[in-house]
Simulated assay, not measured.
Amino acid sequence: MNASISGTMAGAPPPPSGAARVWHRTVKVLASPSPYLMLAGIALWIAIYWLLCEGLKLPRFEKMPGPITVIKDWVSTDPRQGLSIYVPEYYEHIYVSCRRILIAFIISTGLGVPVGLLMGWSKTIKDYTFPILELLRPIPVMAWVPLAIPMFPGFEAPVIFLATLAAFFATALNTMLGVQSIDESYFRAAGCLGSSRWHVFRHVVVPGALPFIFTGLQISIGVAWFSLVAAEMVSGDFGLGYLILMSYVNSTTVPMVIGMLTLGFVGWLSSGIVRAIGNRLMQWHVRALAMQGR
């Protein structure tokens, strides 16, 4: 019997390699309409952009650089307005903004997730902290600029603080909602089994809140990006926000549009990375949604 089992196991095909799994997923994605609809949406947006600025040259749009003008400068070795993929300064702006976002995202996650878990788990902690968060959350990031500049030295710290502040609220509140969404029956079942408060927190609260936590992280990184750009426009020496502002001040509209498009691509990529990490860490949740057809 053991020999037959061994023979069966020996004759079983080996599990697919990582490359095979990636290829299978790629084929599956290409077989669905999603990527083609995405490309069609981008093409439609570019067509409308070209039509407004370069095709019809409508009022209020005729002075804006169209997509052809922007792309020509973007890929030119000798750009007319000084910025392209061949200019080292372009990549320095991207690097500085990405570094600031990474630092702000790590800090806001490290603070926001524990605060949200504790607020959702303990009514006492929520009663202390939630009113403060609700008082500070509606204050725009730009209103913090006059305080951030004297509070933190240099150009770097105020910008990181402002991006962290905005992302913190989104992370903490979504985490708190995640804990509050957990069914009470799980807590009762854990109590009947004699679980300590620490075990309930570790094995019920944290896993139950994970879907909301990663949703909050996707929101927070987007919030961090537009807060960062606003901060770089006021207090910064490099970065995509600083690039956009300086292009506006110098009336160089092509670098301004290049900076805006670059910001969109980098923000989209960063949100995709957070989403991919979340799906990887929560494969059980992804499978549950798939079984529900969502």
Rank of each mutant, 00 (worst) to 15 (best):
F265G: 06
I68F: 10
A12G: 08
G154W: 12
P114F: 06
A43W: 11
G216W: 07
H285E: 03
S271I: 01
E134G: 06
P138L: 05
A189L: 02
T129R: 01
I107C: 04
Q218V: 01
I160Q: 07
G267T: 03
A170V: 11
P65R: 11
S196Y: 04
V113S: 00
T8G: 13
V200E: 00
A31H: 08
E134N: 15
G66V: 13
P131Y: 04
Y91N: 08
L162A: 05
Y95I: 02
F238P: 01
I107D: 04
V249F: 09
P153S: 15
K28G: 08
C98A: 13
F265T: 10
I182Y: 05
G236Q: 02
T8C: 10
F152R: 04
M256I: 00
S17W: 12
A20K: 10
Y242R: 13
A3S: 14
P150W: 09
A167K: 12
G293L: 09
L162W: 05
I71T: 15
W198Q: 12
M38G: 10
S185Y: 11
V200K: 09
V204I: 13
L83G: 03
V274F: 10
P114C: 06
F105L: 01
L217A: 00
F61G: 05
R99M: 05
S235I: 02
G55H: 08
E89R: 14
H93A: 02
G41W: 12
A19W: 12
V141I: 14
V29E: 10
A172F: 06
M256Y: 05
E62M: 06
I101L: 13
T164M: 10
H285Y: 11
G293R: 12
A190I: 01
P88C: 03
A230T: 11
I68T: 10
V200Q: 03
N2G: 11
W45F: 15
L165S: 11
F168M: 07
L83Y: 13
R137C: 05
P14D: 14
P15Y: 11
S122A: 09
F152I: 03
V223C: 13
Y90G: 04
L37T: 07
V70Q: 14
L117T: 01
I213Q: 00
T252K: 15
Y86A: 02
G66D: 15
L39Q: 05
T164P: 04
M38V: 05
P140V: 11
F214L: 00
H24T: 12
T262M: 07
H93F: 03
A276I: 00
S196L: 00
W268D: 02
M246L: 04
A290L: 02
T253G: 10
S34W: 07
W198T: 11
F168E: 04
G116T: 04
R280L: 01
A209I: 00
L147D: 03
V223R: 14
L269F: 14
P79A: 01
P138W: 06
E54P: 07
I42Y: 14
F105E: 01
L52E: 11
F238N: 11
P35H: 03
I71K: 05
S196R: 10
W268K: 13
V229R: 06
